[in-house]
């Protein structure tokens, strides 16, 4: 089992002191270490943003590609070698904005992998512009008059599109986040964990304190039922609240919204995945019999 100190790098991350990314890395590296997975058993893929700079702070088999394009790369890896566990880390701008199209189709495909979203409701790396999950009317350098449009509701979109595992975590609660990561990694299918990750430098509204005052755990609610899609969808509507809502006015659920134990994954639909794809491509295939038809 690799130690936490082995799955991460002895390098001080360049994140701002106090950033939610630190706790997210703590949670994930502990889960990776405790899972006992060997380095050759998993691959990590990052988008571009502050979250993506995490690529430099883990030691793994990793891929740090283009902004918004982590999911297609990860899908490629997952479909090339079904024996690998694939873990994707994206931002809210990265995964729900420029990569939003991939998000929807990855949900549809139910590719067996885990997608973690560092949702700080802002573009961190590029200095604080509004992101697709910024609340309506939020003032940012790119929206001096306030964000005009409604935010993306990632949980709602995923649930509506047929996702088989949708959870939401909070970087201020590492033990809870670890539980979500563990369940996501154990899930057979596309597992989504959207994580509130306060950006202490650019988002002065959705701070640790803001979430702490509003977040509650679904698992602790009386009629909790993560097998009900309609219920999950209803809960996701908490995305739409007033920018300046008081804590008692906007209650924000965290935990597993929805899960489907037995689902048909994309990998299940591809019989050629009985072995890694490179094994198919070692010799030219004889296509004469196909040509003869013509």
């Amino acid at each position: 089992m690799p130690e936490v100190s082995e799955v991460t790098r002895a390098l001080k991350p360049t994140w701002c002191p106090g950033c939610g990314n630190f706790n997210m890395q703590k949670a994930l590296s502990e889960v990776l270490s405790e899972s006992g997975m060997r380095f050759e058993e998993y691959v990590m893929v990052w988008g571009i943003g502050c979250h993506g700079n995490g690529a430099d702070f883990y030691r793994s088999q990793g891929f740090h590609g283009l902004h918004g394009r982590a999911l297609p790369v990860a899908t490629g890896i997952a479909l090339t070698n079904p024996q690998l566990k694939v873990i994707v880390e994206m931002g809210d701008g990265d995964g729900y904005g420029i990569g939003g199209n991939h998000f929807i189709h990855s949900v549809r495909r139910n590719v067996n992998m885990t997608a973690i979203f560092h949702n700080n409701q802002i573009y961190g790396l590029t200095t604080g512009q509004a992101s697709p999950t910024s609340d309506q009317f939020m003032k940012t350098p790119s929206t001096p008059g306030g964000v005009v449009e409604e935010p993306v509701n990632p949980v709602g979109v995923a649930v509506a599109q047929g996702a088989t595992f949708v959870a939401r975590g909070f970087a201020g609660d590492v033990p809870h986040l670890k539980e979500l990561y563990e369940q996501a990694l154990a899930h057979e299918g596309f597992a989504i964990v959207d994580v509130f990750q306060p950006c202490v430098t650019w988002n002065k509204i959705n701070t640790f304190k803001w979430y702490r005052e509003r977040a509650y755990k679904l698992e602790e609610t009386p009629d909790y039922d993560p097998t009900s899609r309609t219920k999950a969808f209803e809960l996701s509507m908490s995305t739409f609240h007033d920018l300046t809502c008081a804590p008692e006015e906007c209650r924000i659920p965290i935990g597993v919204f929805y899960r489907e134990e037995k689902s048909f994954t994309y990998q299940d639909g591809l019989p050629q995945l009985d072995r890694p794809l490179w094994q198919h491509a070692q010799q030219p295939r004889d296509i004469r019999s196909i040509l003869e038809k013509f």
């Binding site: 050759e40 058993e41 690529a55 430099d56 030691r59 990793g62 740090h64 590609g65 070698n81 690998l84």
Partner: peptide, 24 residues
Amino acid sequence: ALPGVSGATQLVNSYEHDEYGWGS
């Protein structure tokens, strides 16, 4: 080395990188 090869931790990086792959 493909992912899955023992000992081949690596960072395939679209940022400029060193011989390992580290972007910083």
